[in-house]
Nucleic acid binder design. Structure first.
Lengths: 122, 122
DNA sequence: ATTCATTGTTTACAACCGTAGTCGATTAAA
DNA sequence: TTTAATCGACTACGGTTGTAAACAATGAAT
């Protein structure tokens, strides 16, 4: 199992998944853009992720280059399963039903999902 | 927004959503069955939930009867939305795609979801 | 060469979480 | 009526998380 990634850490991961390797400052620039945290905060998150071996570091002179060691797809698959297991007894249908009920599904969404399901059956 | 419910607290909530009102001991019996925690732990969780006004208490002699103040459906809808927003940019299709890719969707699941979508369009 | 900026490291600290022990009050049992 | 069980309240304690300041080393600029 992939190490647990906290919500704030996840924000940092998204940046690295979008582009890597990056320096701490480069990561921070992007995260700060989106979340307004301080540089120190982002560095702490990077350290924690590195300590958990969720991101890897590569020395580049006096600084580090950070890269994800966990693939986004693998991570998402893992947390999705956990989520559906915990809240919906592992069944996706009730999840879709809930989202639909809360008007989170547009007609386009429905069409998209239908298309996806059609492909899955093929 | 509904107060945040931690994972352990959620376990307690499931019991109360299944049947309420219940005394602390009754809740504990069911939770212990499933999770093996101590009575004290369950009581602590109930207190925290009561403090957050996620469960309500009603005095019954020397003890309390606990009931959910938050509906399961509303709670699930909330966390589902948060989850899909955070991890999939609010789009359900990629979530379904991920679950499918991880072989989490059986042929039956697919049929069920298709049926559900059909109803939604009606 | 001295100063300024950048970088990673260490430390901080409050809130939240999981997990429970203890305690004082009360009630049921003997 | 003394005792044993039960109840909620209070306290605890280590781990995680969000958020960051302080610091030391190093490199850049002047």
């Amino acid at each position: 199992m992939v190490e647990r990634i906290s919500e704030a850490e996840h924000e940092v991961m998204e940046v690295l998944w979008a582009k890597a390797p990056l320096t701490a400052t480069e990561v921070a620039d992007r995260v700060i853009e989106a979340k307004g945290w301080s540089l120190q905060t982002v560095k702490t998150l990077l350290s924690r992720l590195a300590a958990k071996a969720v991101v890897g570091t590569e020395r580049d002179g006096r600084r580090f280059l950070y890269s994800p060691l966990v693939e986004r797809d693998a991570y998402l698959a893992g947390v999705s399963r956990k989520f559906v297991d915990r809240l919906f007894g592992g069944k996706v249908t009730p999840l879709v039903a809930h989202l639909a009920e809360a008007d989170e599904l547009s007609a386009d969404d429905i069409r998209e999902i239908e298309e996806l399901l059609r492909e899955l059956k093929a």
